[in-house]
Amino acid sequence: MTDDNVQSFVIGDVEVLRIMEWQGAFVPARQLVPGCGPEVWKEDEEQLVPGHWEPDGGMAVMALQTWVVRSAGRTVLVDTGVGRDRERPGNPLFHRRQSDLPGRLLRAGVDPREVDVVVNTHIHADHVGWNTHDADGEWAPTFPGARYLVPAADAHHFGPEGGYGGGVRVDDRLLYEDSIAPVHRAGQAVVWDGEYRIDEHLVLEAAPGHTPGSSVLRLESRGERAVFAGDLLHSPVQILHPECSSCFCLDPRQAAETRLRVLERAADERSLVVPAHFGGGGAVEVRKGRGGFTLHRWAV
């Protein structure tokens, strides 16, 4: 790959591409992970700097990105970023953002018209934004040939039946109406619950806590494994301290329980952990050690 915004690795017979939309200082680290005080970040500085933490300003370094998985003859997207020209008044970084994920996909050799499956690990603005695009003043699916896999618990919570997230966050109604509802109207949404198998290599599993319907995508091919962890992890500090949930988790206690369970299995199975937003290395193998987990090997 010649594009600096694209990286790749292989798991068995499955190719994975990392398509970066944006990378940089996002929020103060203590705000991102409230349970981890400054002494925790300082203690782990060697493993967090420079790709995940800026110690001088105390900012967490993060990324907005999409993962492309080429599996069993299909092209699968894992999350679709923020989108373009979205009304997101609750988040200045996302509000009316200008980005070009379809263009970046094309430059990486991925034709949006040939995407077969779109996985939304959960319904948050930075995971569903490019589900749709502006087609002559109407929101329409960006990937016309794809099934969009949407977790049932989030479809309920963020949809009209759940009062658009109970009206707690101003952006929830907006993102549902511009990024989820049009996919339903087009007949391309598949709402799933519990577990959903995509093919012989890929299976979605419920992983609640960050949102009611948060999920992980497990990949297994020729004895090699990876788990796309969505927003169970925002920083490597949460691998080293899995009891600490992010400020964005709707149920921090449940998120911590789920995170511990996913990391335990990843360490036991030697699975590569692929979170949604790590700003430096984007995929890491974890091992058990020091009474918890260690960062063993970065894939990208």
Rank of each mutant, 00 (worst) to 15 (best):
A108E: 05
Q238N: 13
V203D: 03
G166N: 09
E195H: 14
R185C: 11
A108G: 08
G280W: 01
M59R: 04
H95Q: 11
L295G: 02
V69Y: 05
V110S: 01
V118C: 05
P38C: 05
A299N: 11
L204P: 02
G282I: 09
V168S: 07
V150D: 01
C247H: 13
V273M: 06
G109W: 09
R225G: 08
H157S: 12
D172W: 05
P236R: 00
P212I: 01
A267K: 00
L93Y: 14
A256C: 09
D199P: 10
W53N: 03
G109L: 07
D136M: 12
E21P: 05
C36P: 00
R70C: 09
A229R: 06
E285M: 14
R297Y: 13
T121V: 13
I123Y: 01
V33A: 02
T258K: 03
H122R: 10
P252K: 09
R96W: 15
A146S: 12
D178C: 08
L204C: 06
Q47I: 04
T142A: 09
L240E: 00
V262Q: 09
G162R: 06
A72Y: 12
D251L: 08
D268L: 15
E46A: 08
R290K: 15
A60F: 02
L64E: 07
R84Q: 14
R104D: 13
A283M: 10
P34G: 12
E285P: 07
L48H: 01
Q188G: 08
P236S: 08
G35K: 05
V273S: 02
P208D: 07
V118K: 01
G209T: 06
G73A: 10
H201T: 02
F228A: 04
P102N: 15
A181V: 05
E43N: 03
G163Q: 13
Q254F: 14
Q31D: 14
G57Y: 00
W67V: 07
L77E: 02
D171F: 05
H184N: 12
V227Q: 09
G57E: 10
T132W: 06
E195V: 15
G57L: 03
L175D: 00
L174P: 02
R225K: 15
E21I: 07
N91V: 11
G280D: 05
W41G: 00
V190N: 12
V69F: 05
V10L: 13
S235K: 02
A226M: 05
L250W: 02
V150I: 14
G83P: 07
E264Y: 13
S71L: 06
R18A: 04
A186Y: 02
A153G: 03
Q7F: 11
H52P: 00
T211L: 06
R104I: 14
G137A: 10
H124C: 15
G162T: 00
V117L: 06
A72E: 15
F94H: 08
G90H: 10
A226Q: 10
